[in-house]
Write a protein that binds this DNA or RNA. Structure first.
Lengths: 117, 117
DNA sequence: TGTAATATGTAGTCAAACGACATATCACCG
DNA sequence: CGGTGATATGTCGTTTGACTACATATTACA
């Protein structure tokens, strides 16, 4: 199995996974910031519960799609916030998912769905 | 809960559900024809197992998204093929899902995913 | 001092896709 | 006439992952 097939076999992403990866696309974020970002990105439609978020982050770490970022930035306090960033694998999977989504809309247009015009 | 919220609460569709509904968008089809159509629509990527297909069809019937079509067309033989068509609810849900997918791609563009350009 | 926002996590449940299995007919070829 | 592949419909058991509920702790502000 080549790299492309390896990636394709992970698709489709769930909506939750898609939004988490997309939230990390511009740069590192910690869990709670991801929650707020996803809510904003989805126009309040997707509100991650903490159960969903942290089990998803654990899974994404195991899969090697994201990794922990050591935070040099202790903002005065000593609080530890665990930040995450995309790995190159994670970024590749996100790109592949975007292409898959485009394919879904392409076939909707083929089937003359007015909303897909 | 108004009609729009009723529909929104059913999203996101799974990929399997999306393709089945899309396969029925142009008109009635029976199970096996749906299987072949989905395979073609997805460029061989999505190959429904019969376990997936028939349990999905049963669920979609229960939900009232599709309904059985009485087949007047017995093609010479007496074989019974069970055909299905979209209900107006099913069609509305498919349209809403197309709009959701467009939203997913819109945010990917916002995040400068090159593949979403 | 209390309450809302920030922040991270676990446990148990449920929906749905999947592979494996089962059955039957039809068309065609050797 | 017998076999094989396509057509056609279905069940069962497993696994994945999202969800709700629960649990804990800090910070900021009124």
């Amino acid at each position: 199995m080549d790299a492309r097939e390896q990636i394709q076999s992970q698709l489709p992403l769930t909506e939750v996974t898609y939004f988490i990866l997309l939230s990390l696309a511009p740069g590192p974020r910690h869990g709670y910031a991801i929650m707020k970002d996803v809510r904003a990105l989805s126009r309040e439609r997707v509100s991650l519960s903490t159960g969903t978020l942290y089990t998803a982050l654990k899974r994404l770490l195991d899969q090697g799609w994201i990794r922990r970022v050591e935070e040099p930035e202790k903002n005065g306090d000593g609080r530890v916030r665990k930040s995450y960033m995309l790995t190159s694998l994670g970024a590749a999977i996100l790109e592949a998912e975007v292409e898959r989504l485009q394919g879904l809309l392409r076939v909707a247009r083929m089937r003359s769905l007015k909303s897909a015009a």
